[in-house]
């Protein structure tokens, strides 16, 4: 919800497959996440955060490189690159993640119907491989989420229909 005095550049929407960075007091947000994930990497000392709106766990080998935020395996290195270019120190970078729901309880032989769980697993493995600690998460389940990351408090607000807002 925007207040009267708020400048639009202070909140940035991270669309599907996108990746954006922000500095205090900016916010990064994404609305209505289902199986997708909002992954935020941040360095509080360098005062920089970046969010990727991840759709899928793994990029196909012939993937076009212009949307690294789309896949877990390309989003993590890109987030690290963006943060480090802005002065972040790899040893201080932390992660928070939300999303990866299974919206429909449907019997299907298609692995894509369980893509949320695969996204979560891919992000966790990727963070581990890069040595980035996962500070907090709100993942899985069957509820859609709207996610806002606030660079003044370095917290993630996760809203759902029916379960209100929680802060990570």
């Amino acid at each position: 919800m925007k207040t009267a005095g708020e400048v639009s550049t202070q909140s940035r929407n991270v669309g599907m497959g996108d990746l954006h960075s922000a500095r205090p007091p900016e916010k990064l947000y994404t609305l209505g996440l289902g199986s997708c994930l909002a992954l935020v990497l941040y360095d509080t000392r360098a005062e920089i955060a970046a969010m990727a709106h991840i759709m899928l766990p793994k990029s196909p080998s012939d993937a076009k490189a212009e949307k690294p935020g789309k896949f877990a395996d390309t989003a993590i290195p890109k987030l690290l690159e963006v943060l480090e270019e802005s002065g972040a120190d790899r040893r201080r970078i932390r992660a928070k993640v939300a999303g990866g729901a299974k919206m429909f309880n449907i019997a299907s032989s298609s692995p894509l119907m369980a893509i949320g769980q695969q996204n979560i697993q891919a992000v966790k493995e990727g963070l581990k491989a890069h040595g980035i600690p996962l500070e907090a998460e709100d993942t899985g389940g069957s509820r859609g989420r709207s996610v806002t990351f606030d660079t003044t408090s370095w917290t993630m607000q996760v809203r759902t229909i029916g379960e209100g807002t929680k802060t990570l």
């Binding site: 209505g32 996440l33 289902g34 759709m55 859609g144």
Partner: peptide, 25 residues
Amino acid sequence: LSVPAVAHDMLGAIMDIMIAIFGVS
């Protein structure tokens, strides 16, 4: 067709799974 599944949630979250399928290619 498979047995249908019902979901009540945010529009974006509902559309995610359909869209993700396209993201592969």
